[in-house]
């Protein structure tokens, strides 16, 4: 029955997948085959990235995903995880605005679901990519209890830039 579900995914939510792709998924995953827009998580199996809500977000998925996601598209001389980056951004942001610490920690939480898209992708691949990323980010912030991200976004952005400069100046990146 799961196989029928894959073929019947509404076109408004997902790009339809071909019969060949569905067969490949069925062959690989059997009855647990994921639909085309689902991503695998550490703790919570599969989640539909286009339908993600705050109720789907789990700290273990975020922490594990960010700890194993490297900054700078992997082009670093040593491991520089997004989790570590987020810890430093949080610390710097809290100095600028004490209310920004949690927002700073969670500012890249969406990358546990999307991976780390480097800036050229975000800047040049159009609104579809950023729309998906923003909706996931919103769900993550809501789940973490960041109720007014607009208030602290300036401090977080400033801290994010400072840590990026540090990563570059330290030749980690």
């Amino acid at each position: 029955m799961k196989n029928t579900t894959i073929a019947a995914e509404p076109a408004s939510r997902h790009q339809p997948i071909s019969a060949g792709e569905a067969a490949t998924l069925r062959a690989e995953y059997g009855e647990n085959a994921p639909p085309a827009m689902h991503v695998c998580l550490f703790r919570n199996g599969w989640v539909d990235v286009l339908q993600l809500t705050a109720g789907d977000i789990d700290l273990a998925d975020i922490a594990h995903g960010l700890a194993l996601t490297n900054r700078w598209n992997g082009a670093t001389v040593q491991a520089v995880s997004v989790a570590w980056h987020s810890l430093v951004v949080s610390a710097v942001a809290s100095e600028i605005d004490p209310a920004a610490a949690l927002h700073g920690l969670m500012h890249d939480a969406a990358e546990a679901y999307t991976g780390d898209w480097t800036r050229p992708y975000k800047l040049h691949l159009g609104p579809m990519l950023t729309d998906v990323a923003q909706r996931i980010e919103q769900a993550c912030l809501e789940a973490a209890g960041v109720t007014e991200p607009a208030v602290t976004s300036r401090a977080v952005k400033e801290a994010d830039e400072a840590v990026l400069l540090l990563e570059h100046a330290s030749r980690w990146a």
């Binding site: 705050a54 922490a63 995880s81 570590w84 973490a144």
Partner: peptide, 19 residues
């Protein structure tokens, strides 16, 4: 990195946070 992130999140997250 993972455990430090979890510790910091639990320290900062309000009690009412859904997560």
């Amino acid at each position: 990195a993972e455990s430090a992130f979890v510790d910091e999140a639990l320290w900062l997250m309000p009690a009412a946070a859904p997560m």
